[in-house]
Structure formats: structure tokens, C-alpha cells
Computed example of a mutant assay.
Amino acid sequence: MINQSIAFTKPWQVEVQEGTFAAPALAADEVVVKKLYTLISPGTELACLSGNESWFGMPGTPGYASVSEIVETVGDERRWNRGDIVFHYGDHSRYQVVSTRGTFLEVPAGLDLRWVPFTRMATVAFTSVRVSNIELGDAVSVTGLGLIGNMAAQLAQLQGADVIGMDLSAERRRIAEICGLFETYDSSLGEGKARVAEWTGGVGVSTHIEATGLSKVAADSLGWIARSGELILLGSPRGAHNADLTDVLNYCHLNDRGCITFKGAHEWRFPVEPDPFVKHSMVRNSRIVFDLMQRGKLKIEPLISHVLKPEEAPSAYEGLRFDKDRYHGVLFDWRQ
């Protein structure tokens, strides 16, 4: 079989490579899959492409959000069969040997296969509401309405919150509104504190979800969080930011400043597989996302900006880097 894969060969260089795929002897918990669609994770993959992520070695194949068809199993593996359609954390390649343990799930019948890889981004966003104290009727703000922030805002609304989404991009705000976000704000105008005060009658939000990964945005948001509220750090902070740390820490310490709780919302804080002693897991969250998609409660279609051939990978990453308004939810179609 001829395999095709997307490779980051050096900083800011993307290549599409071809070679012969020969699967090794499979273990009982391994299968060979043929990708149908894979989704680019813009924040993580651009960080890898920059060469600044120490865990990602170059040359290397990025990607961790896939829907695939099983094309080979071992004889004594009874659970999975050739032709099964599965969601898993696969990379940007046509064929791959993958483990059936962990987040390797059969796709429900009738679910749009283009939506399935977005489950990965949705479970990342899910962590923000899982760690929060959001309850019915709470006021919540979200900074950054890319894929993760958009879905975090949708999930916070499903949790019963009134949500205001903030972003510099008019296009991202428009997409968020199509996805059902009732209140958005142009953060390029500044004065986020004044806008939130107006929206909440001067109280502030009880929960703020920071999805940009920009440290300055997180620090600025402290001014509009209500006393005894919480700041959820959903976006992974990248890049230096010089600030007075004492002033920031006073917000989480002094009651007259806010007494704010900071919470990290990295997805790996939960176990991958269900555990009888832990309520949440990544597998459980993924299944809930499937259900929300099928029932039309989590909107995915407006998030898809491009469905491209693997050969178009260099232009896809260029678009995500330099044309963020038009490139956001980019899928590779491996079916041909």
C-alpha cells in the first residue's frame, strides 16, 4: 500500500511525503486504519511547526484528531472488524497502526464523518466546564472564539450559563453567533471590563474561560470577574509576557480585590478510560460529544472552513498562520 503523510521537516516547512506502508505484526490490541478525515489543531500544530515545542521532533508527522476505517485486524481480536468506522487520536497520514485502547471509539451510525474529528477539540473544550463551578443562570465570559473557545462557549451555554464571547475577529464572532452564542463583543475595542459590567449590571462574571493562550488576556480578564469568581485557563499559555505578578496574585488572595480562583483546564487532568472512582474520563466526554452532535446541540458545521486534499497541506498551514479569519476548521480528506 502507498502511504501518504504530512511532515513538518523544519520550522515553517511542510511537506507531503509518500512511501510504502507495510504493517508490522499486530498485537491483539492493534489495528491498521485508513484515514477518512483528519482535523488540524491550529494552536498545537502551529506551535509544533514553529519548532518551539520540545516534545515534537522534526521531521515529524503532526495531528491527533481522526475518523478512520479499520482495514486490518489480527485473527483473535473479536471486538473490532474490518470496515468499522472509528474515532481516534490519529495523525495526518493515510495509513497508521493504532492501539484500540483508550479513546478509540466506534462512530455512531448517521453521524456526519466530517464532524467526527472535531470531537477531539470538543473534549479539550469540555475540560473548561468540567473543572468550573458553572451553574444554571451564571454569567460566563470566554476570550478567544477559535475552535476550542467556540465550543467552550457552546458547552457553557448547554450547562445553563449566559455567555459573552470576546474575540478580535468579526468572522469568528459571526461564526459563534451562528453556533448559537447570543452575546459577542469585539475585544479590539478594549474596555472589556466596562462591557461586562454593562452586561452583568455591574456584578461581573462568575466564571471566565480564557481560550486564547495569551497571558496578557488572562491577566486583563481579572478586572471583570466577580468577587469569589474563577478564571479557567483553557488555552495553553505560549510566549513571554512581562507583568507585575504580585498584582495578579492579589486577585486570587485579597477579598477586596476579588478573591479569584485560578483553575487549569488541560484535558489530560482526567483519566483516558472510565474509572469507577472518577466520574469523568476522556472516553466518556467523547461519547457525550457524539450525542450532542447527533441531537444538534453542539454545532459543528459552521466551524468547518476548508476540506482539503493532503497535497494542499502547505497552503493549509499558511492559511492558518496568516489568514486566520478564513482558515480555522481545516480538514484533510484522505478518501481518494
Rank of each mutant, 00 (worst) to 15 (best):
S5I: 05
D112M: 11
E318Q: 15
E230H: 07
Q157E: 10
D220M: 02
F277G: 08
R321S: 09
C179W: 05
W12H: 03
Y64K: 10
N52Q: 12
G51M: 08
Q96T: 11
A7C: 12
V330M: 02
G19I: 00
A28E: 12
A47Y: 14
S141C: 09
A153P: 05
I148Q: 04
G90T: 07
D162R: 15
G239D: 04
F332T: 03
T212W: 04
A243V: 08
V98K: 06
M151L: 14
G223P: 06
D325N: 15
D167G: 11
P117E: 13
R195G: 09
R94W: 02
K309H: 11
D84M: 08
L249V: 08
A139S: 13
T9Y: 14
N52G: 10
E267Q: 14
D186P: 11
V16C: 09
T100E: 12
D162A: 14
S305L: 05
G319C: 11
P274M: 07
V98Y: 07
Y327F: 13
L303Q: 13
R335I: 00
W224P: 03
H306G: 11
S41T: 10
A7I: 07
V116N: 03
V196C: 04
R284S: 11
I260P: 01
D162K: 15
D186E: 13
D291N: 10
